[in-house]
Amino acid sequence: MSINNINNGSPKAPVDNQRLSQQQQALNNGNAQQSSVQQAATAGVRQDSVSLTTYAQQLSQVQRKSTEAPVNQEKVDRLKKEIQSGDYQVNPESLAQKISTLESELFGTKA
């Protein structure tokens, strides 16, 4: 089996090894120069930044408020004892109102 019309019938040009090595060397030098220029540019201009979502900002405010809030340790101890003994009673209406108030304070809505 024979293959016709390879290279449109024209003879194959001989490879010029010297020219090929010069082209490869020039390409390598160009890549090295470009890489060093990019490294120098990024080294001097590098800046990091952080952007918080609205939810993250609200969470940060809540955490800050919780660390600043005073703690009545006597009341905490009394409530712990009542819960452990089973004497603590939850008022569902009062609890619902307090949750609603907290959400309105956190998210800026009216209760």
Rank of each mutant, 00 (worst) to 15 (best):
K80V: 05
E103P: 02
K65T: 00
G44Y: 00
S2G: 07
A111Q: 14
N8K: 11
S36Q: 15
Q33W: 02
S49A: 10
G108Y: 00
A41V: 09
T42L: 10
E74W: 03
Q18S: 12
S2V: 02
Q58F: 00
I6A: 07
K81H: 11
T109C: 09
Q22R: 12
I6K: 01
V90I: 15
A26I: 03
Q73R: 10
V15I: 14
N7W: 05
A56D: 00
A43W: 00
V62W: 05
D48I: 05
T67Y: 06
K98S: 15
V45E: 09
G86S: 01
K65Y: 05
L95M: 13
P70Q: 08
V76M: 09
I3M: 13
I99E: 14
K98M: 13
L102Y: 01
Q25F: 09
E93H: 12
S21T: 02
P14W: 03
R19N: 12
T54C: 01
R78F: 03
K80H: 11
N31T: 03
Q18C: 03
Q34C: 07
P70A: 09
L59N: 08
V45T: 15
S94D: 15
G44F: 01
N91D: 15
P92D: 03
V50W: 06
S49M: 00
N29Y: 00
V37D: 09
D87N: 13
N72Q: 04
L52Y: 02
